[in-house]
Design a binder for these strands. Structure first.
Length: 924
DNA sequence: TAGGGTTTT
């Protein structure tokens, strides 16, 4: 077959690298792997972290001649940092330039036309499929970390399952390699719709040190945080050196455990002037520490050899000895150092002879504070990192020997019908527990203390549900429709999203105008079938090119008007990036610290009020605050100090800056004459622009409207200050952090609803009721055209307009009558005929309107049929579907004599000849 | 008057 390379490409590796490579178990499997790849279009490689598959498999392929500048090896990663660091590592190992081994992530990359090995985030490859469905510049695509089942990974696997045979047919075969850290591959191998021929699965060993797992005998009912504290205390007091990593579920828990541990195992702290200590970390100054070391003679950590199984633990007897996991790489607890389900209270006593270097770690923590966990702790101290789930996959902390796992995780849940999200703490999966345990065996044999019993563990789900089954999918569906995959329901998802989620996505996209509406006539069965197979509209195609959620993409698509684009781009970027503002609410260690935070918080609140603007601007609400914050920050050059001083999250501001750049480029490439650029000195919007922006926001967030409960509807106190939405029966409230919290506008739109103690709307903006029917007709049920104000002819559009009252869908809110297109039907022809006769449609006919034989108004009378001239004019218009100016001009183009005889019936015979000469009465 | 894990185009 043409894909089988005949060459061997030499690689010039340094001796040190060559030596390190040889230690990797995967090197022994090179031949097996390469044979499988040579003989099969699709291969699955399973190997845990530490097997070296990510760095080595691309090198095997390169050496075997799979790569060339016009047929690269592509590797996808679920995270940006991984794509960048892997490309750097592989380049170094192969002694090749980054021009050859490159990366591409959302905002940046170093790909050249020499690139032969390309690491990228999974989203980047998905975008590339949009431009080149066959991925013709790749000869191999590797999907890494497929076990994580991220949304993009799943969708890529589905797409590639179709691309591989297409490439085969074209005689340009493409190899697909799926790499997974677990053996959970049945969704790929057992899914005949995905891969009709089951791909071979190759298992590779990992170079991991053994991790002994200790289960608690008892599972704490709710105080897992306290149990963590006791376990860390025991480890620190009794076990030999080695870092401790604790898994908790949220920031607040992390900080509170950090405080407790620091109190229990303090070490001399001296605060240098100006030193920032807002999270209360001990100052890591070696000098200070050495001093205390001299003062206290015994400052050595215990030196019990944990891996010498003859040592008997001091407090044994409480452990769950039947502990066993079904993972062979993690040893079950047998006869070794278990610590018991500690519940003694003596641990609370402060003991400064055993300093513990305690650090918090979570995703939103400032990067420089995160970085502390990668540096070695002050000499003589033991490192203890208290982390959320970031430490499970995203960040690897060196030197960890002990893992304390509470067994819980905080996850976001979405209500499939209402879209309301909430955060819940749940048990983790067995796979997740094993992944956490594995973090103890990176540098030497380790121990994992699970704060739950083995029976509880056995009740865990084997794996967590793939992301695609848990989230709203409108963005995904739009991307797929842009790839002309219309029947999304037939797509070979490894695991399909629930049908309700697909239907909700399709419905939203139709309402946004991104998909063509399904027919509402015909057989019910066909209607239902058409419902989940709507093709993309031209607006949808434009929206799909904007790398943001469809609601926001719609806002961008509308913003050409009134010079709103720079503002919409900024607003959309700000809404896309989460957590713009710093949090100052977590309790601090010292009183000065508490006071300092109080000051910062007050300053931020003051700035937010300033950014919210004056007068009518304020109605843009939280989105105006975002706009103001980004504007001010950019004006200050996006300086770190400005962010720190004003309570802005620096990392968020940098991301917004890059996203603004990307969106500006995207908009420019859709409308070349827009000539947009990112202006660091962007002025605030004018009052008029702020109003347009509110309308643009409404057009994107049409399904996120809420209406204040009217005084007369207030039956129950629980509805005080509450809002009602179309889909929720319960009251919703403006979140107290919103600048509109006290304003309570009658109608608002919101970015999202999060359920905590109540249902709270966040990212709120006020809208005027009359905008709703004008901008969101899909959500409104319109009544009959009003007689007053009367229907009129619109010279701009050439169409008949009228005023129609409407009610909002599902909730029936009465909306003000607004001017809209006259509804389709015979009456629209009658009005068109009338305005045509009056000379309003075609100016050249206005000279004849003085001499008409009947009043044009008779067109509208119910007895109009009594007059032959009304009848023939109407019939002629209906015959050519002429109820607007454009249709009339088109009809004349087709037939220049069109309408002449019908019109002649309305004017004296004497004028007929003259009229016929100048007919049609317009230049075509 | 609140309280939020983690990713990505």
């Amino acid at each position: 077959p043409p894909c089988k390379p005949a060459v061997f490409i030499p690689v010039d590796r340094s001796p040190e690298i060559q030596e390190a490579r040889l230690k990797l178990p995967i090197l022994a499997e090179e031949q097996v792997i390469m044979e499988a790849i040579s003989e099969n279009p699709i291969v699955i490689i399973c190997g845990e972290t530490g097997s070296g598959k990510t760095t080595q498999v691309p090198q095997f392929l390169y050496e075997a001649g799979y790569a060339s500048p016009n047929g690269a090896i592509g590797i996808t990663e679920p995270r940006r940092v991984a794509a960048v660091s892997m490309s750097q590592r592989v380049a170094k190992e192969m002694n090749l330039s980054h021009r050859v081994v490159s990366y591409q992530i959302r905002y940046e990359g170093n790909v050249t036309d020499e690139t032969q090995i390309k690491f990228m985030t999974d989203g980047v490859l998905l975008k590339e499929i949009q431009k080149d469905f066959l991925l013709s510049k790749y000869r191999v695509v590797i999907i890494d970390e497929a076990h994580e089942r991220s949304m993009y990974t799943d969708i890529l696997i589905g797409l590639l399952s179709r691309i591989v045979p297409l490439r085969q047919k074209k005689g340009l075969p493409l190899k697909l390699i799926i790499m997974s850290a677990t053996l959970r591959v049945e969704d790929f191998t057992g899914n005949k719709r995905l891969f009709s021929a089951t791909p071979p699965v190759i298992q590779v060993d990992a170079r991991q040190f053994p991790v002994t797992v200790h289960f608690n005998k008892k599972t704490p009912l709710d105080d897992y945080s306290g149990e963590c504290f006791r376990k860390v205390c025991k480890i620190h007091r009794m076990l030999p050196p080695g870092g401790i990593l604790v898994f908790l579920t949220g920031q607040a828990e992390v900080h509170s455990l950090c405080r407790r541990l620091r109190k229990a195992f303090p070490f001399q702290k001296t605060k240098t002037a100006g030193e920032e200590d807002d999270k209360g970390e001990p100052v890591e100054e070696t000098r200070t520490f050495k001093k205390s070391r001299k003062r206290r003679k015994v400052l050595t950590l215990p030196k019990i050899d944990l891996d010498n199984y003859s040592v008997v633990p001091v407090d044994e007897g409480d452990e769950d000895r039947d502990a066993d996991t079904d993972d062979d790489d993690i040893a079950g607890s047998d006869l070794d150092l278990d610590l018991g389900d500690g519940d003694s209270e003596e641990d609370e006593k402060s003991d400064s002879s055993l300093p513990l270097y305690v650090l918090p770690l979570y995703s939103l923590l400032a990067p420089e504070k995160q970085a502390k966990v990668f540096r070695s702790p002050p000499p003589g101290t033991r490192l203890c990192v208290v982390a959320t789930n970031v430490a499970e996959t995203s960040l690897t902390i060196p030197g960890i020997k002990y893992v304390v796992d509470c067994g819980k995780v905080k996850k976001r849940f979405y209500d499939r019908i209402t879209g309301v999200s909430s955060f819940r703490v749940t048990w983790i999966s067995q796979a997740s527990a094993n992944q956490r345990a594995g973090r103890a065996g990176r540098t030497e044999p380790g121990h994992c203390y699970r704060l739950y019993s083995s029976a509880v563990f056995m009740d865990f789900e084997k794996f967590s549900a793939p992301e695609i089954t848990k989230r709203p999918v409108e963005d995904l569906i739009l991307q797929m429709k842009a790839l002309n995959i219309e029947k999304v329901i037939n797509f070979p998802f490894p695991t399909p999203p629930p049908t309700e989620a697909l239907a909700a996505a399709e419905e939203l996209l139709i309402a946004l105008g991104a998909l063509k509406e399904p027919p509402t006539t015909g057989r019910l069965k066909q209607q239902l079938a058409a419902k989940l197979s709507c093709p993309i509209s031209s607006l949808g195609r434009i929206m799909a090119t904007f790398p943001v959620a469809p609601r926001y993409a719609k806002m961008l698509a509308l913003s050409r008007q009134h010079n709103c684009l720079p503002y919409t781009i900024t607003m959309v970027a700000a809404m896309t990036v989460r957590e713009l503002f710093e949090e100052f609410d977590s309790p601090a260690v010292s009183e000065e610290e508490t006071a300092r935070r109080k000051g910062k918080r007050a300053r931020l609140l003051q700035m937010q009020r300033l950014w919210a603007g004056q007068g009518p601007m304020q109605k843009l609400g939280d989105l105006m605050v975002m706009l103001g914050a980004v504007g001010a920050c950019e004006y200050a050059g996006c300086a770190r100090k400005f962010c720190d001083d004003n309570g802005l999250r620096y990392k968020a501001m940098l991301e917004i800056r890059r996203l603004r750049g990307q969106l500006t480029t995207a908009v420019n490439s859709v409308c070349a004459d827009a000539g947009l650029y990112v202006d660091p000195k962007m002025k605030p919007p004018t009052e008029a622009q702020a109003t347009y922006l509110r309308q643009i926001v409404l057009a994107g967030l049409g399904d996120h409207i809420a209406r204040k409960v009217q005084a007369e509807e207030l039956l129950d106190d629980k509805w005080k200050n509450a809002y009602k939405t179309a889909l929720l029966d319960d009251p919703v409230f403006i979140h107290p952090s919103s600048v509109l919290f006290k304003e309570l506008p009658e109608f608002v739109v919101y970015q999202e609803i999060v359920e905590t103690t109540k249902l709270y709307m966040k990212g709120v903006s006020a809208v005027e009721p009359e905008w709703i029917p004008a901008l969101l007709p899909p959500y409104c049920h319109f009544g009959k055209p009003l007689e007053n104000p009367p229907p009129s002819y619109c010279p701009e559009t050439g169409r008949i307009h009228c005023h129609r009252p409407s009610v909002f869908y599902r909730v029936g809110w009465e909306l003000p009558a607004v001017e809209v297109d006259y509804p389709e039907g015979i009456d629209r022809y009658k009005y068109f005929a009338r305005f045509l006769l009056e000379g309003k449609v075609i100016e050249e006919l206005s000279s004849y309107s003085q001499c008409l034989l009947s009043s044009p108004l008779i067109m509208l009378k119910t007895w109009s049929k009594l007059q032959p001239r009304t009848e023939s004019l109407l019939q002629a218009l209906v015959a050519e579907n002429c109820d607007n100016r454009d249709a009339l001009l088109a009809a004349w183009k087709k037939n220049p004599k069109y309408l002449l005889s019908a019109y002649c019936q309305w004017i004296p015979e004497a004028m007929h000849q003259e009229l016929a000469k100048t007919w049609p009465p317009v230049a075509l």
